[in-house]
């Protein structure tokens, strides 16, 4: 059981967690990650561009891979697009499994792949102007540990 949503609207992490818990009686662990817009360095807003269709298929491919590696009962991924301001939620990754280790690891795995493979791009706005965020080599290093 998995759900992928790419949307402008905000999401409710509590509702996502509740739905992860509906996966059945053998669920013993739910691990989640929620990413927020960080307002440091004078950031006033962030606009997320995305490749509709490929976003969903890339995320789906990584959910299949995560399910191959860990015994997952449910996965829910929500990624927002459009213009967001500091403090707003950007992304949610949640996984349910019987045990905590699989849930923690699969959540990190999915987040690392999302950051390095899913076609989203961030445009940062500051008083001085707008800049596209450059990819970080630390993110590439994070994903290598799963290879």
């Amino acid at each position: 059981m998995s759900e992928i949503r790419v949307q402008q609207a905000d999401f409710d992490p509590g509702e996502e967690i509740a739905k992860l818990g509906d996966a059945g009686g053998s669920t013993g662990a739910i691990a989640t990650f929620t990413g927020l817009v960080r307002g440091d360095g004078g950031l006033t807003a962030m606009t997320l561009d995305h490749y509709s269709g490929m976003c969903e298929s890339e995320i789906a491919a990584h959910i299949i891979e995560a399910k191959r590696r860990w015994p997952l009962l449910a996965v829910r991924i929500v990624h927002r697009v459009g213009r967001l301001t500091p403090g707003e939620r950007i992304v949610f990754v949640g996984v349910a499994s019987s045990h905590r280790q699989a849930a923690f690891e699969a959540c990190e795995f999915l987040m690392d792949y999302l950051k390095t493979r899913a076609p989203f791009w961030k445009l940062e706005e500051r008083a001085s102007g707008s800049n596209w965020v450059e990819a970080r080599s630390e993110d590439d290093a994070s994903v290598k540990r799963w290879q």
Binding site: V91, P119, K122
Partner: peptide, 25 residues
């Protein structure tokens, strides 16, 4: 809609996208 290399084959009915390294999440 699949990550590819610059040596990948392309034909008249393909969809080809160009973009910088991704920065989502």
């Amino acid at each position: 809609q699949h990550h590819s290399g610059f040596d990948a084959a392309v034909g008249p009915h393909d969809e080809v996208a160009f973009f910088p390294p991704v920065t989502g999440g």
